[in-house]
Design a protein around this nucleic acid. Sequence first.
DNA 1: AATTCGTCCTGC
DNA 2: TCAGGCAGGACGAATT
Length: 576
Amino acid sequence: MEAPEALAPAWIVLGRTAGGVEALELDADARELRRTTVPRTELAAWVAVRETVHRPRWVWSDAPSWYGPLLDAGVRVARCHDLRLCHAILRDSVFVADDAGLRRVVEWDATPLAEAVDDDSALFSFDEGPVGPPDDLAGVAAEFERQRLAIARSSEAGRLRLLTAAESAGALIAVELRAAGLPWDAATHDAILVETLGERPAGGGQPARMEELARQVRLALGDSGASLDSQPKLLRSLHRAGILVESTSRWELAEQRHPAIPPLLEYKKLSRLLTANGWTWLDEWVRDGRFRPVYVPGGVVTGRWASSGGGALQLPRMLRTAVRADPGWLLVVADVAQLEPRVLAAMSSDAALADAARGRDLYSGIVESGIVETRQEAKIAILGAMYGATTGDSGRLVPRLRRTFPRAMSLVDEAARVGEDGGVVTTWLGRSSPPPSEGWRTAQSQATEADASAADQTRARRWARDRGRFTRNFVVQGTAAEWALSWLADLRGRLDRMTFPSDGAEAPRSGPVFARHPHLAFFLHDEVIVHTPAALAEEVAVAVQESAATAGRLLFGDFPVDFPLDVRISRTADKS
DNA sequence: AATTCGTCCTGC
DNA sequence: TCAGGCAGGACGAATT
């Protein structure tokens, strides 16, 4: 080999120069081994060799800008450290006491890359500041050293290592998900649209069924010119017809008894489908049989992913039959049952809640424990506990949970108290909530002064409770996101190790990089879809389960909580 | 004319 | 389906 084993790099830091790329190879203790300049055109091949020989952790400013082009060139890597994402975590984490100067470096507080990339004007504007983090080797290596030290000096170094590794794995997976795409059958989608909306109008105008429904509504209202697409105008038309609603929202309309209401509700439903996921969406987002949304790891304060473009977070259920595996391939669709309460049980060491959850539907387990009558009650009670409900059925049921699951409830109650007091809360692995805004703190301190008005005090209390609900949910939602990232990262590794049957299915349309392995095709909070050669589908289904168990052990050790999955093997991603 | 705000609906 | 957390996107209306 070209590099002697003794000099095998554990880390390779990449930075950009005018003509190409500079690489700094480091050993396991981050001591410098070599510096190399690589012409841009040779980067993919250079990376491929080192990946094959050494499997280093690639250290770069951000995964999309580095890994996107590498993947396009057919090169995958196993591990990376995404400095931009990890900076955001370490900057805010209360587990970082000695930050090695990390919090003083503002240039790494860049806007999420997807925003910068999507906004063409940012490329040409000079007054909006940097669109991305620093990218020269000196700047990148310095930030890496700060992050390395910040983690190493933390009393919770193990958790932060896990979190930064999981976050970085997520960064790779997000790029790969976009490159692979979700197999999408445009013909099925079109058939659903035609069946639901009616034929697509040739020369503009509305689909046939919507047109007919609109006619029925106008007839029933006795208002031939009624506008159904403008909320204020529709509201006025309804009032003129004697339908005295305060809004045009579905639940309020549904309470009314009037012949115009059923066709109006149906019209609104169809209108929603047409505008959000109609033919325009299909033309714009589905190419070559793939839906390729932009995933934004760490895009949500809690650590959940966001998405940008295509509405990947809101694929309507009725379109899931359009998600269709390539010929000879299958989809393995898996989601976790009640992830968040299970995570809560584990992080609070609440054995009673873990018992109620074990091996079955958690809500049924709570019913069996006797504190509520029905599964539905159990569900709204648990959701109320995690979201901070104080009124209604949910708020009424929460006190019962407090008696039966005191440890779990005190964890979320304490998180809410800290938030109301202006404090910071932290997930299991160390992602901390942002501190309260200046305006929030000002409102709180003003409300305690002698001349504070009743309105000031009311507002301050409301804002305090709002923030308490946020921090209450933050610890659970954020830790669930950490579990999900661990699940995903472990699964990715298992899928890569599976061998493609040589005489098996034809290559998928996902591109050459994904032609030889089952690969992740979709991820949303607690659900994954794997696109796999049919012969490997059973093996993939097992791997998905094993990865869930591994994620549980990785985060919570031996604490006896399980994470049962609903796993389906199918041509489509239909939910039964 | 361009940008921001508010409403509504989808997902977890 | 209301309450109670986190999102994205479309659209019309209001604002600049």
